[in-house]
Design a binder for these strands. Structure first.
Length: 430
RNA sequence: UCCGCAGUAGCUCAGUGGUAGAGCAAUCGGCUGUUAACCGAUCGGUCGCAAGUUCGAAUCUUGCCUGCGGAGCCA
């Protein structure tokens, strides 16, 4: 019977066949241990010379790393295996022999591993990170579907630059200029006016020369947008969403988190409500901490965010930023025109900002003023402004960076390990 | 774009002016419970590239290239 490695527990004592690759092997004169992986998991095959005979034993000893094979044997419970089960091998059918697999079971440098990303993905650690990423995506769909959100896909090719802030990838659209999307938000606002509560999940592109552990050139964002939701409603969705995702990973990725040596006690605490501080309070706090390189009106740098986040064992919202340093579409605080109804969510343990969100301006006149103040192309934003002409309603939304979230939850240092094929500054291969 | 660090065997690194080294991988042999297995042997080099200093350069100088860490910007 053909099974996968994760199904082994249901077939104890039975003879099964598994299609697998050889991750590593160890052998002595009369016994060989084959570390097998099939994509669903890892299991150890034990080949005993006195049981299989000379021929099969020699065959087992000679299999090279990452060769593919069908392996047949009896599933046995064994607490010496970290998985809990072993395969007592009876026969091996080699599909394709691998030659000089470059990633050996020893240390490798970043450049070498990145050059071999297509193979690096096979390693236990990368396998675990990809499973966590998948669980976060699964939990995201679950969360928003359960709450009546409709998934809407905004375009990736756009004709106008949504904001002047980020560097965009330029391309041609037949005879016109076009740009790769850096955010689907404006389109999601239109979608929210049609469908009420919507969310998107897709790639975004930033042509910034950023070279840090938190930046990718191409990364994936989840962007919910909700009609009739104010600032307060927005924060509530965010904290419920983030804690749902963390609790789902804890529930469904125990094995993977263990393999990544993630301190799960820190994740257990991620439950609503999340702490909040205002921008004003954050500035005051930073001054008390001795940061004299920042004053009211400046945006926070990474060291500032980290210093603030270190006070909490949960993600923390920083709210009410100065209007001047935030995008044109954010709703000003009715009591204080100089700040906006926005919040960034900073992850604990130094992983930085994972969410940026706000209530959006729904007043037509104010939005048009802002477009002029920011010297944006009025023609290009005509459709966006028009959303306020036909039945405008208060609405809010946010964007969550998937890779930073994966990095935080899995406890990996760098976002380049959280996406299958990272696009980085100076890296487009493989 | 700026600041700092690095580039030597397939991989990870040592070698700081005088014959190019180790561990791992690979190959061969040994070992009945290995966990990056272990033990012995063999194989393995344009010392990033270019120019310069010197009797002599992996080592010192200059330029360039590549990568890493960080900043800015952002999710």
């Amino acid at each position: 019977m053909k099974i996968t490695i994760t199904e082994a527990g249901q077939h104890v004592g039975e003879e099964v066949t598994i299609g697998a690759w050889l991750a590593n092997k160890r052998s002595s004169g009369k016994i060989a241990f084959l570390q097998l992986r099939d994509g669903t998991g890892f299991i150890q095959g034990v080949v005993v010379k006195s049981e299989v005979g000379e021929e099969v034993f020699q065959q087992a000893k000679s299999i090279t790393q990452e060769s593919s094979l069908y392996i047949t044997g009896t599933v046995q419970e064994d607490n010496r295996s970290p998985f809990g089960y072993e395969l007592s091998v009876s026969s091996i059918d080699i599909i394709a022999e691998a030659e000089d697999y470059p990633i050996t079971p020893k240390e490798h440098g970043t450049e070498f591993l990145m050059d071999h990303r297509h193979l690096w993905l096979r390693s236990r650690r990368q396998h675990a990170v990809m499973k966590v990423r998948n669980e976060i995506i699964r939990a995201t769909y679950e969360f928003f579907n359960d709450r009546g959100f409709v998934k809407v896909d905004p375009p990736i090719l756009t004709g106008s630059a949504p904001e002047g802030t980020s560097e965009l990838f330029h391309t041609r659209y037949f005879d016109e200029d076009a740009y790769l999307s850096q955010s689907g938000q404006l389109y999601m606002e239109a979608a929210a006016m049609a469908l009420g509560k919507v969310f998107s999940f897709g790639p975004t592109f930033r042509a910034e020369k950023s070279k840090t552990r938190r930046h990718l050139i191409e990364f994936w964002m989840i962007e919910p947008e909700m009609a009739f939701y104010n600032f307060e409603d927005n924060l509530k969705v965010q904290e419920e969403y983030v804690s749902h995702v963390v609790q789902s990973v804890l529930a469904n990725c125990r094995l993977e988190l263990g393999r990544l040596d993630r301190d799960t006690s820190k994740l257990e605490q991620i439950k609503t409500p999340f702490p909040r501080i205002t921008y004003d309070e954050a500035i005051e706090f930073l001054h008390k901490q001795g940061f004299d390189d920042i004053k009211w009106g400046d945006d926070f740098g990474a060291p500032h965010e980290t210093a603030i986040a270190e006070n909490y064992d949960k993600p923390v919202f920083i709210t009410h930023y100065p209007t001047a340093i935030k995008p044109f579409y954010m709703q000003p605080d009715p009591n204080r025109e100089e700040v906006v109804l926005c919040a960034d969510l900073i992850a604990p343990e130094g992983y930085g900002e994972i969410i940026g969100g706000s209530e959006r301006i729904h007043d037509r006149q104010l939005l048009e003023e802002r477009i002029k103040e920011h010297k944006l192309d009025e023609e290009a934003y005509k459709w966006y402004a028009e959303l306020r002409k036909y039945g405008s309603v208060p609405h809010s939304g946010f964007g969550l960076g998937l890779e930073r979230t994966v990095a935080w939850i899995s406890g990996v240092e760098h976002v380049r390990e959280t996406i299958p094929f990272p696009r980085l500054l100076n890296r487009l291969y493989p």
